[in-house]
Simulated assay, not measured.
Amino acid sequence: MKKRKRPKFQIGDTVVITIYGTVGVVTNMKQLDGEIVYEINKSEGLFKENTLAFLTEYKGGENHLERLFIEYKYSFGDLVRVKGCENDLFKIIGCRTEIWRYKEDAWEDIIYELTRIPDGEWLEAQEEELKLVADHEEAERILKKTELLLISSQAKRKGLPAPESPEILIDRLLDELNDYQQLYHYFQDEFYRVKVKEIKEKLKHAQLLRSQKSE
């Protein structure tokens, strides 16, 4: 029985495509007509083993043309949280890729540029430091909802009179409860959870007041 050939390279290995002199990472490997072929940087083409070399083994020239395939996890306009700043919400406004190449190693870092909601403070963070809250399509709707709630809170602090009718009060509280429940669902922020609890208590009192007035 013919012994099955063991692959020279493994997924994740940094290699040089010797026919082009470019550096890449093995992202998949397959059997094709009994021969092992390799996918590099998630490209459509497949390369035979004899066309690849470990970066440490390659003795080619110093100047190489390299084609990179960068996959971005987040998009412009996405709402995210940042490791170490979990109580703040940020919006992605830009990104850049830093390419690092050394004789025996190679990697790429993706850096995102962010602005904090609502004061616009600028921050940079790497991809692994981010956690998605809402994609760019959902973000605008959430931000408009948050803005309306902030305006409402500011109006209350200025001393605007609250509705005296229990029915109007209950309707308003139900609207606020729905808003804060949605915000807590999206952001998982402790502030919104507390607000939901407070509004539910107010609803109990308002409903009790309505029942007393109807007696």
Results as ranks from 00 to 15, higher is better:
A53P: 03
I151D: 14
Y72R: 14
I199H: 02
Q207H: 03
G120D: 11
E147C: 02
K2A: 09
Y38T: 10
I17W: 02
L123H: 04
Y72C: 02
Q207C: 03
L169H: 10
K42S: 09
G60D: 12
G45F: 13
M29L: 12
S211G: 09
G84I: 10
H205M: 12
Q126C: 09
T56R: 11
I92V: 01
N50P: 06
K2H: 08
G21E: 06
E129K: 01
S75I: 06
D88N: 15
K131W: 05
N50T: 13
R116D: 08
F191W: 15
K30T: 14
K3H: 13
L68F: 04
L55W: 08
Q126A: 04
E190V: 03
E49Y: 01
C95V: 05
R141T: 15
L149T: 12
T27L: 00
T56D: 13
E35Q: 10
A53S: 12
F54E: 12
K3F: 03
K3N: 13
L114V: 01
F90N: 10
L150G: 14
E128W: 14
K103N: 08
L32C: 13
N63Q: 13
K42R: 08
S165N: 11
V16H: 02
N41H: 11
G77S: 02
V194S: 14
E124S: 08
P7Q: 06
F69C: 09
C95P: 03
K2V: 13
E147A: 05
E127T: 07
L169Y: 01
Y192V: 03
E62L: 10
Y38R: 05
V15R: 00
E66N: 15
S165Q: 05
L208F: 13
R116P: 03
Y180D: 08
D78K: 07
E104V: 04
L79H: 03
D135E: 09
M29D: 11
Y102Q: 08
Y180C: 01
H205E: 15
A162V: 11
V82I: 00
K204R: 10
T51A: 12
Y72E: 14
Q154R: 14
L46E: 10
I168H: 09
E44I: 06
Q188A: 01
K73V: 06
I17M: 02
D105V: 03
D179I: 13
L203D: 09
E190N: 05
K213T: 11
N50G: 02
I110S: 00
D175S: 12
K197W: 07
E147D: 14
L177C: 01
Y180I: 06
F47T: 08
G60I: 12
K73D: 14
G84M: 05
K83P: 02
T56C: 07
L89P: 02
L160C: 11
K8W: 03
V82K: 04
S153H: 09
Y74S: 09
I40L: 01
R141M: 11
V82M: 01
K195F: 00
G77A: 04
T56H: 10
E108M: 01
G84C: 05
K200S: 08
E39R: 08
G45W: 12
E176C: 04
E129I: 04
L114M: 00
N50C: 07
D175P: 03
G60Q: 11
